[in-house]
Design a binder for these strands. Sequence first.
DNA 1: ATCCAGTAGATTTGCGAAATTTTTCCTGTC
DNA 2: GACAGGAAAAATTTCGCAAATCTACTGGAT
Lengths: 231, 231
Amino acid sequence: MKTKGETRASDVHTRMRADILSCELKPGDKLRFEALKDRYDVSFSTLREALARLSAESLVVSEGQRGFVVAPVSIADLKDLTNARVLLEREVLRLSMEYGDDKWEADILASYHRMDRLQTRLGAHYYFDEEWARLHGAFHRSLVCACKSPVLLDMRLHLFDRANRYRRMSSQFRTKWRPKDVEHKAIMDATLDREPEALDLIGRHIRETTENVIEFAGHLFVQDEVTASVV
Amino acid sequence: MKTKGETRASDVHTRMRADILSCELKPGDKLRFEALKDRYDVSFSTLREALARLSAESLVVSEGQRGFVVAPVSIADLKDLTNARVLLEREVLRLSMEYGDDKWEADILASYHRMDRLQTRLGAHYYFDEEWARLHGAFHRSLVCACKSPVLLDMRLHLFDRANRYRRMSSQFRTKWRPKDVEHKAIMDATLDREPEALDLIGRHIRETTENVIEFAGHLFVQDEVTASVV
DNA sequence: ATCCAGTAGATTTGCGAAATTTTTCCTGTC
DNA sequence: GACAGGAAAAATTTCGCAAATCTACTGGAT
């Protein structure tokens, strides 16, 4: 995060991004400039810059000269996202297990502890919590951040965020909860022990989450629609 | 390509993108608004939108409130890019070989033929040619476009373009040429025959290109600098 | 009743001037 | 001679308005 040179535009970009990922701006919503200008208290041009950035991140889609829309969600998109995530996440975890040093291991233990403590405190409702989502993201990042590949890490984070939008959409419909989270612990232990099994665990973890999302929130998504790729 | 709803901003974005990828705007160049306004004949806001898009594509980097710079090049970045490309390219090729139908095969043959014909016509200088670069890109895309994963295809194209910038930078210093291009033919044949060997061939193809780029143009790149990732 | 065309209203896009920030360069002091 | 302080200059960022474009609605003809 930039602490000093934070421009108005990048600030709006960050806030809109958060609003889209947390589904405060719902998929498919039309983004009218007048309303957004009011909401974020900035001018047309500044908004336009933020929307252009989000558009390049495929969080909003621009429809020619007909304005911007929050990127739609679909089962096809979620499945596609999931497959891509498994591919990338396995690779960055493999590389991290190869290159990771003492500091890496310590960071993993620390971020797991933070996540686990909050989870215990919140009980079954952790899944709704903003702060838990942040710590969960930080834990997963700590697992793979030793892979020495900025390119892969950027792509991974990008996909993680996009997938997180689906997870949050499903959270309010969820009725099945694990009493205690054992998955993350197992992934961490296998990773720290450099067991190749960790790769399968992380892959299964991602796929299971996706299956749950589809089970509980699949009715919210468009079935056939495929998010257009700009080719 | 949009033929109708082409806005001024997306047009400038496209042209600047091309200028960066073809190294007409050199890596590290400071992008001053006054000069760009003159060059592309547009206003501040329009430029700003295009730059924001390019920034999200990591083709330009924004330095807080100190303007924009064409993304720098480095050996570390090229190697990182190469590894990521091999991972993705193998996967989309594998999937395409699984899902590809008759039309896919026909498109591969057609785009190979177009590339091969131009190469024969141009002789050893094909490597400099803009049109050949386009046909080369189209051939590689045709190999993998049956993979049914918009997410992976977008990421692949993104990395391909970024790597292409390095290839073009090296072309003017190149002294070693293959008399006849046999690599692409071999990749195509193995792909159409659904031989798993195709995956290794494409991986080796990418790595060899990178090695040549480093051999002939390595002196142009910054050694240590690592392109900062926005995390 | 349906379809097409033309017009009014709403929305987006583009522009250049003002405000803010960074950089440069000059001056005075240690 | 080097270094900090400060003011002028240059560049970037932001803003509100005018022009272009799209959407919706009304009215008339088939």
